Structure formats: structure tokens, C-alpha cells
Simulated scan of single mutants.
Amino acid sequence: MSLFRTELRRLTKRRFTRYMTLLGLLVLAAVLIGVFFSNQKIGADQYAKAERQADQEYQQQVRWTEQERVACEQAKKANTSDDRRYPDDCSQIQPPPREQIQADWFLPSTFDFRETFDETLVPFAAILGLVGFVVGASFIGAEWSTGGMMNLLLWRPKRLTVLLTKLAALLTGMLAVALPAAVLWFAGFWAVASFRGSTEKMTSGAWQSFMLTGVRGVVLVLVLTTIGFALASLGRHTAMALGGVVAVMVVGQFGLGILLQMANVRWAEAYLLPTYMLAWITKTITLQDWNSCNATYDGSCEPKTLDITWQQSSVLLSVAVVVILGASLWVMRRRDIT
């Protein structure tokens, strides 16, 4: 019997794998349904209603301004005016021009596929990545804690082959979940945009960009799955992976972030892992340093910026996978199986 098929069957038969995967898919479905009901298609009725609300807002501003002008004049006559509240000339208290109150401010939320869909790929990759991490850690961690790994090595004594075959089966299973989920994610939000927004201005370039972003999201899911698997194998227990990620995120990320901010370190976000994961999905993250400025021709001050690109993120993710997976393979080969 093929070891790969056996491990793949073992993965799919585990109740934890099924429940965790189902939970992740239900969360994704909840996000999709929530976006559907929180948006609506904008037509002539919505624009007319927004214009009426803009007029109402303008009238309220006019009434409030008139009240403030009268209060200012009364305070001036009674010599009780507060210089910090009213100007010297009460006639300066005027309502804003009508054109400044735009009807667009009062339009309901609508889902523009071209402008908004790429943002939805971030929670998609994050949720499936979390599922993959936990499932991967549990898959190999349970084998170690129950003694299943030792029994398997009696049948197939090649340690690295067994471990890598388990990893291959795990990644195949996650890919079998992530790819259909990505297709349904695209289709679901296309339906949301069709019924609750707009699908206009979609070009072949926009589709290609979305596809590449989706591919990077699936790759991130596989990377997190591999890291969870490798950490649990390294510690020979599921708790090693879960405890490790909690320590890294709580101590390493939150603690480091607070320390960097207290020390006023420039580009503090550039030292945090979530920044690189987000840059991997969105292609580029632009950090701003508000303590410095670049003078412009009109005399304004623009903060200096630093771009974190998906290429830089790919180097960090590759190094993490190589180091953690390499360490687990080395430990697997060197330590006794007891």
C-alpha cells in the first residue's frame, strides 16, 4: 500500500481535521454573507435619497450657524463673550457652502468588485492559514503523542521519507481545500458585486492581478501549514506549535512592537511579522514616518515612506520555512525514536 495514500486517508479521516476545516469554511461563509447584507446596489433612488439627506444636513448647518451667530451677538452685547469660542466679528459665523456637503457622503455602502475584492483576499488567506497551521500541528503532533509515529517507523524505518510523505499528504489535503474555496470565494464576491454593488471596469489586467493575489494567498496558507507541521514535529507535540506561535505573537510581536514604539524606532512596523505577511498578499505595504517630512513645492510637508514589497516578504517566508522545516528534519534524523 502506498504510504502517501495511507497518510492522505489518515488525514481526511481525522475528526479534528474535518471539524477544523468545516469551522474555517463556515467563518468564510459568514464573512461572505455579512458583506452581502451590509452592501446594496446604488441606483437613482439611492442618489435621490442621498441628495435629500445632504439638503437636510445643509439646513441643519444653517440653523446651527444662525443660533451661534445670535448667541455671539448676545454675548458681545452683554460683554460676556468667550474669546476662545466666538470670533471678534460675529458675521464671520457662516454656514458652509452647499456644494461642500456632498451627496456621496450619504450613499449606502456598495461593493465595487474592482476596488474592493483584493481586500477580501486578506481574511481569506488568514482564516485558511490558521486552519492549516492548527491542522498541520495536530496531524503530526497526535502521531508523536499517541505513539503512532513509532509504530509506523517499525514498518517504514526511513525517518525522513516518512516525515516528508506526511507533509506531502498534509499539503495536498490543504491544497484540495484551498483551491475550491478560492474559486467559491471569487464566485461568491462576484455575486455580491452583481446584486449588491458593481462589476464595472473589470479588465483582463484586473483579473490577472486578482488571480496572482489569490495564488499568493494559497501559497501563504501552505507556508503556514508547513510551519505548524514542522514546529509540532520539532517538539513532538501539538502544544509545541501552538505554544510557539503564541509566544512569538504575544511576546515577540506585541512586546516588540510596544518596545519599538517606546524607543521611537523609525519604521517600527518593519520589524513585525504581520507586516510582511500582509505585504505578501497585497504586494506592497507603505510605512510612513510622521516624525520626518519631505518638503514639497507648495510648501506642504509629506512624511517619509518605506515600501515593504512581496519580494522582500517572500525572502522572509522562504527563510522561515527552510530553517524551521530543516530543523525538524535534522532532529528527526538525529534523535532517538522513543
Score class of each variant (00 low, 15 high):
G147S: 05
V245Q: 10
D298Q: 07
V183S: 11
N264K: 12
I324R: 02
L179I: 15
F124D: 06
I285S: 11
V246Y: 05
V265F: 06
V246A: 14
M149G: 09
G235T: 06
A206S: 05
Q61P: 03
D298R: 04
S138N: 15
E302G: 06
V221T: 00
Q53L: 12
A263N: 12
I258M: 14
A263T: 09
W267E: 03
G228S: 01
K49I: 07
F37S: 02
V162W: 12
S209M: 13
M149D: 08
L278V: 11
D307P: 01
D55H: 13
E143W: 04
T116V: 07
M211L: 14
V162L: 15
M240S: 15
A193W: 09
R15W: 13
A103P: 03
G299V: 08
M262K: 14
T6Y: 14
F37G: 05
R84D: 14
G129Y: 04
V122F: 06
R216P: 06
S314R: 07
R236S: 09
G326M: 10
L220P: 04
G197T: 06
S318G: 15
A270P: 03
W207L: 15
L22A: 14
V251F: 11
G132Y: 02
L28F: 05
P157A: 05
S2T: 10
A169W: 08
N151W: 01
P95M: 08
A191Q: 08
V135M: 11
M1V: 02
A178P: 02
G147W: 01
V131K: 02
A268E: 07
A75K: 10
A206L: 06
T165K: 00
V250E: 04
A187L: 15
R196G: 01
P97Q: 09
F16W: 00
P123Y: 10
V70S: 13
D89A: 06
F117G: 02
P274L: 08
L242E: 03
G255S: 04
M20Y: 05
Q102E: 13
A78T: 01
F195Y: 11
G148S: 14
A54P: 04
R84E: 15
F117R: 01
F195K: 07
V245W: 11
L179K: 10
A182T: 12
P274R: 03
A263E: 13
R156T: 14
R196T: 02
D336S: 11
V183A: 14
M277L: 15
F117P: 03
T110D: 00
L28Y: 06
L28C: 03
L3R: 03
T12S: 14
A142H: 11
L256M: 13
S233E: 08
A295M: 07
D82Y: 05
F254G: 02
Y271N: 10
L22W: 05
V70H: 11
A263P: 04
T165M: 09
D298S: 12
A295Q: 03
T282E: 15
A182S: 14
A241T: 04
V192D: 07
L256V: 03
T286G: 06
